[in-house]
Design a protein around this nucleic acid. Structure first.
Lengths: 105, 105
DNA sequence: AATTAATTTGACTATCATTGTCAAATGAAA
DNA sequence: TTTCATTTGACAATGATAGTCAAATTAATT
């Protein structure tokens, strides 16, 4: 599981590998080329729907791309936080706890 | 580190322990009583600034309250996601990786 | 039980972040 | 040097978040 590349980098690499133009992929996503350009350079975030479509278009495993995308969203949330690391750990604990006791809810 | 209580519950418990009224605490935060009421019942999220002030007002350790608060924000981000657990793990990995190589940036 | 004080609810507004378009500027290829 | 692809930045549209206010409800006092 490669953790070094950003979602944007992955998208660009794979688009180029397929010889597709920004214009072409953007059209399939029904957005302006400019946005896709920004997404690939991590200047903007994609939406979940766009990620799903992109996985299809670029023949990537949807789950992998989504996990990558979501993890970036999480990090974005705490990127400026001293306590980010601690908060992440606690979040994981809570998550486990929730899943253990998810009988109701 | 108690993980079972929500930020709201912690806030309410400690406000009541001190015998303070919503009205009084809300005044110090310079917001309407209604919002604080909602925050304590987890119907709304507090802002970071409010959390910091609340830690002071209620004599709670700022770091603990902030970690609690941030972890809740993270979970909120992935609460509806199948892949939340995986995304959290990947986020932690990335975080570690970043901190290891944070020489520049 | 009646009154008063505290909290909750919900409709509404204001503010801010996000997502998008568009046109012009830049860069790369032919 | 023209043409095509990408990038940039100003702006508009949308959506989410944070807030006010007044009325309804609940809890305490007398």
């Amino acid at each position: 599981m490669k953790m070094d590349k950003s979602t944007g980098e992955i998208l660009r690499e794979n688009r180029e590998k397929k010889g597709l133009l920004l214009r072409q992929v953007a059209a399939k996503l029904d957005i302006d080329t400019a946005i896709l350009s920004k997404i690939e350079r991590s200047e903007r975030k994609a939406t979940k729907e766009q990620i799903i479509k992109l996985a299809q278009i670029l023949d990537l495993k949807e789950e992998d791309l989504l996990v990558q995308y979501l993890s970036e969203k999480i990090l974005y949330e705490i990127k400026d936080e001293e306590l980010g690391q601690k908060a992440l750990k606690v979040a994981e604990q809570k998550m486990k706890y929730m899943n253990k006791n998810n009988s109701n809810d």
